[in-house]
Amino acid sequence: MDVRHGATASDGTDASAGAVVTVRYWAGARAAAGVDGESVPAPPTVGGLIAALAQARPGLAAVLPVCSVLVDGLAASGDDPLPPGATVEVLPPFAGG
């Protein structure tokens, strides 16, 4: 899965032409990803998205296991379905208080 906005999929089709989700990265996840956010092809599950993001952005691989994931504002886990058009927030643990 190619996660670059407007990218060409491995089969030569426009990856942005199908269902997509918007991914927003926060704090340490943003630093690890190197971007604030992106639009990516929507796999069927949250776990599929996380695996694709880790593969496409190796800096995220160490951060993603400790991150919380929200889909349209609700906590989500690996087996949860990922609806096309959703907004996914990737939030690493925050310290302080």
Rank of each mutant, 00 (worst) to 15 (best):
A19P: 13
L49K: 08
A56T: 03
E38R: 15
A33Y: 06
L49N: 06
A56L: 03
S16Y: 05
V46H: 02
V46Y: 00
V20S: 14
A56S: 15
A29K: 02
A54P: 04
R57I: 10
A29P: 01
Y25W: 11
V40R: 07
D36W: 06
P44Y: 00
T45S: 14
V35S: 12
G28F: 05
P43V: 11
A42L: 09
P43L: 10
P43R: 11
A15D: 01
E38L: 15
G37A: 09
P41L: 07
P41F: 05
A54K: 09
A27T: 12
G34F: 07
A15Y: 00
A52F: 01
P43S: 12
A31I: 10
V21K: 04
A33D: 10
V21P: 03
V21E: 10
S39K: 13
T22Y: 05
I50K: 03
G34V: 09
I50G: 00
Y25E: 08
A32V: 10
S39T: 14
G48A: 02
G59T: 04
V40P: 04
A19M: 06
V40K: 07
G18L: 08
G28H: 11
P43T: 13
A27V: 05
A19Q: 13
G18R: 13
R30N: 05
A42C: 12
A31Y: 08
S39G: 09
A32H: 06
D14L: 13
